[in-house]
Design a protein around this nucleic acid. Structure first.
Lengths: 97, 97
DNA sequence: ACCATGTGTCAGAACATACTGACACATGAC
DNA sequence: GTCATGTGTCAGTATGTTCTGACACATGGT
């Protein structure tokens, strides 16, 4: 989950949709990155539970995937890290709601 | 700074010294990893300001590097990420206290 | 002198991740 | 039909990170 945010592009993605949702192709244009690349980063973010996406049919019939941030909040301190490690939360298991 | 914590070994290192400082060779034994490897991870953590280290001369004359955590605290939310990105804090500049 | 302990550093292999350029499919407008 | 828009996925390459196995140096004890 920390690895999900450990990349400039992914941070910029969060920044880009923090103010409101957007759809993939437009987002790719805004961020000046290729769509396949954005697609991959979105997968990582979504797998970590940091963003959510939903397919919708626009007025002109196009299928569009809208992406938005989830209201995540993480208080990061040495003690929190220690507890998380001891609880085995770093081994991939994702406890999403 | 997030990239510094984005690795299992580094999280385990923080966990291992959260309860109290320790010196490098002992830490390497505790964590079951090679000393050069630990050395590199410590460099990354220290560069990010998450741990601090100091050289000391032990009673029997050996030079020993003790490493301890710094009391870092980071409230991680979408808005914080957005602000950090807009402020350009993801481009390497470290704003330590 | 030799061994066990501590320190640091380097080069190259091994691994993981990120990135690019195709490709395929669908829809509405011209 | 062709074009512009949207979607997704795949294979291969580039890049970056992680890891290992030497090496060098110092100190105290046997």
């Amino acid at each position: 989950m920390l690895t999900a945010l450990a990349h400039p592009h992914r941070l910029r993605i969060v920044e880009a949709i923090a103010g409101g949702r957007n759809y993939v192709s437009q987002l790719a244009r805004d961020l000046q990155i290729g769509r396949p690349l954005l697609h991959m980063h979105l997968q990582r973010l979504e797998a970590a539970g940091l963003v959510r996406s939903s397919m919708e049919i626009s007025e002109d019939g196009k299928a569009m995937r809208y992406v938005a941030t989830t209201p995540f909040a993480l208080h990061l301190t040495p003690e929190v890290v220690a507890t998380a490690v001891r609880a085995g939360l770093t081994t991939g298991t994702n406890t999403d709601s």
